[in-house]
């Protein structure tokens, strides 16, 4: 199943209404992502990276074209079916972490599992395992306000990974971090990508992140300008 295609985008077009006219954010995007890929969408602001991630993450639908994610056609999904797809198959990592401030680290990570039918014991085991992946088991009871930016983003990674999704979408995950923390969190994600064979798709213009990518897709004005596989010397 190494070559299993989990994301297939065919002639995607996304238009947003602007007054009586509209703005075209994506033009004829056709891409495929295989299981286990560590890929990045790069490009300047306004190039369509986040819009594309939103469609892949079933948070938005294309105006034209077909988006198929883990066997589901995004165009046809109801709110409920899209939520189900995200709940079981897709993890999100945000630029600003977006941890829920009133809950502690454990609760934040556990939340992703509460929507699934799991027992408290199963949830606890999964959460502690996810925190171990990111090296934060000792911070399980801490509130996000007491954590550094890097630690917060590691909690966000644990939250995205705890349900062992097939696909993780990370929108500028290192934008708010210094270089040490940026390297650390990308390394963590790379390690999880290898160990769990999870597909990671980033949107980024951070050089430090790009160094780790196996595939770099350059977007310019909503179009794919280049799609390049990167060979790393391990």
């Amino acid at each position: 199943m190494e070559n299993e295609i989990i994301v297939k985008l065919e002639n995607l077009v996304k238009r947003f209404p602007v007054g009586k006219s509209h703005f075209t954010a994506l033009r004829n995007i056709s891409l495929e992502f295989k299981k286990g890929e560590f890929a990045g969408l790069v490009g300047p602001s306004g190039s369509g990276k986040t819009t594309l991630l939103n469609i892949i993450g079933s948070l938005d639908t294309p105006s034209e074209g077909i988006a198929t994610v883990i066997g589901k056609r995004i165009n046809d999904l109801s709110h409920k079916a899209a939520a189900h797809l995200r709940n079981y198959n897709i993890g999100f990592i945000f630029q600003t972490y977006n941890l829920l401030p009133v809950y502690n680290v454990f609760d934040n990570v556990e939340f992703a599992l509460l929507l699934q039918k799991m027992t408290a014991t199963e949830r606890k085991k999964a959460v502690m395992e996810a925190l171990e992946w990111v090296g934060l088991t000792d911070k399980a009871k801490s509130k996000p306000a007491l954590l550094s930016g890097g630690e917060c983003q590691r909690v966000a990674i644990a939250r995205a990974m705890v349900k062992r999704p097939a696909l993780v979408l990370a929108d500028e995950p290192s934008a708010n971090l210094d270089s040490v923390n940026s390297n650390h969190i990308v390394q963590t994600m790379k390690q999880l990508n290898r160990e769990l064979n999870t597909t990671f798709i980033f949107s980024t213009h951070d050089e430090k992140v790009m160094r780790y990518l196996d595939r770099v897709i350059q977007l310019v004005d909503g179009e794919v300008a280049s799609d390049e596989l990167i060979k790393h010397e391990d």
């Binding site: 709110h79 709940n87 945000f94 929507l115």
Partner: peptide
């Protein structure tokens, strides 16, 4: 709304 956004992203249904 921020919290709702997180909950949507994590797979909670709008109705829920």
């Amino acid at each position: 709304y921020t919290e709702f956004g997180v909950r949507l992203a994590l797979g909670e249904d709008k109705t829920h």
